[in-house]
Amino acid sequence: MQWLLDPLMVSFVRRALFAGMLVSVLCGLVGTWVVLRGMAFMSEAISHGMLPGVAVAYLAGANLLVGAAASAVVMILGVAWVSKNSRLSEDTVIGLLFVGMLALGVVIVSRARSFAVDLTAFLFGDVLSATRGDLIWLAAAAAVAGIVSVIAYRPFVALVFDERKAHTLGLQPRWAHLALLALVVLAVVASFRIVGTLLVFGLLVAPSATAALFGRSIGATMAIAVLLGWSATFAGLIVSWNADTAAGATIAGIAVLQFFVAALARSAARRLRPALRPTRYPFDRWRP
């Protein structure tokens, strides 16, 4: 049992575990809305679009979180403006700005060779270097996400399932959509130092997507997503310690692996017990 207990005896591993658990709570709350709303591509674009802001903040000696948040807001406003003033679909606009912001960030980074090490941390995170300040920041972000999810629950639900009905009921779907985008920015900005921008997307989407396979309600889906994130964090840190692999990447990889294992298990269960297949959509086999 030494392979299991030894890592937990080290203080920075325990802090990394707490940090990963807080990230899991934050991403489980926000990620559920992201998955149900179909905002995964937008979330990925925001996480990558933060690079210019982080690079500028680093070169200017400013707070990286402020730079990341500013860049994410520019990304969102750019998508909204171009979508409103052109006939392009939102996915096309997101793709264009995603590549443009990423390219701009790389150009800025290329002007400062000393940024190379920090760029690696930006992309892949460093969960093992989590500090007490990081834990406080993550706890506050998770609390804000929980409060917003409770207060805006009805508008979010209406927006997720029927945007036109939400408008008819006077639930302000545009404001609800902006609130969801703000939650995505909060989750990405709060988590990128721990797991990096390339990997925060995995924790934001993978546990929630897995939970959506089994959750019978939004609340249950969120709870399952958080539990899956906790298990991925714990298993990832143990594997990372014993196999000498990158901790953040191992955690995100296990989170994605959970989805495929769950999807295969669910598919196998349906094949073995056809009677349990949902009958709500009798023509499912012909649906695209």
Rank of each mutant, 00 (worst) to 15 (best):
M1H: 12
M1I: 10
P7I: 01
M9N: 13
V10P: 00
R15G: 03
A19G: 10
M21T: 04
L22I: 00
S24E: 06
G28F: 06
G31F: 05
T32Q: 13
W33Y: 10
R37I: 15
M39L: 15
F41G: 04
I46L: 09
S47R: 12
M50F: 03
L51D: 01
V56R: 00
L59P: 03
G61C: 09
L64D: 06
V66N: 00
A70T: 00
S71A: 00
A80R: 04
V82Q: 02
K84F: 15
N85T: 12
S86V: 08
S89I: 06
D91V: 11
T92A: 15
T92I: 15
L97D: 04
V99A: 08
G100C: 14
M101Q: 02
L102I: 15
A103F: 07
G105I: 07
V106D: 10
I108R: 14
I108A: 15
V109E: 11
V109C: 14
R113M: 06
A116P: 01
A121N: 06
L123H: 06
V127C: 07
A130K: 05
D134S: 03
D134K: 01
A139N: 02
A142C: 03
A142F: 00
G146R: 12
S149P: 03
P155E: 14
A158R: 06
L159W: 05
L159P: 01
E163L: 00
K165M: 13
H167Y: 05
H167W: 05
T168M: 15
L169A: 03
L171F: 10
Q172K: 12
P173R: 07
R174M: 14
W175Q: 13
L178Q: 15
A182W: 07
A182T: 06
A190H: 02
F192W: 04
F192M: 07
G196P: 01
T197Y: 02
T197R: 06
L199G: 08
L199C: 11
G202C: 12
L203W: 04
L203V: 14
V205C: 13
A206N: 05
S208D: 06
A209C: 09
T210D: 10
A212P: 05
A212Y: 04
L213N: 12
G219M: 10
G219F: 04
A223T: 03
I224T: 02
L227Y: 07
L227N: 08
L228Y: 03
F234G: 02
A235K: 00
S240C: 11
W241D: 01
N242A: 12
G253T: 03
F260I: 05
F260D: 09
A263D: 04
L264R: 08
L264E: 11
L264G: 15
S267W: 09
L276P: 14
P278Y: 04
F283E: 07
W286K: 10
R287S: 11
R287D: 09
P288R: 06
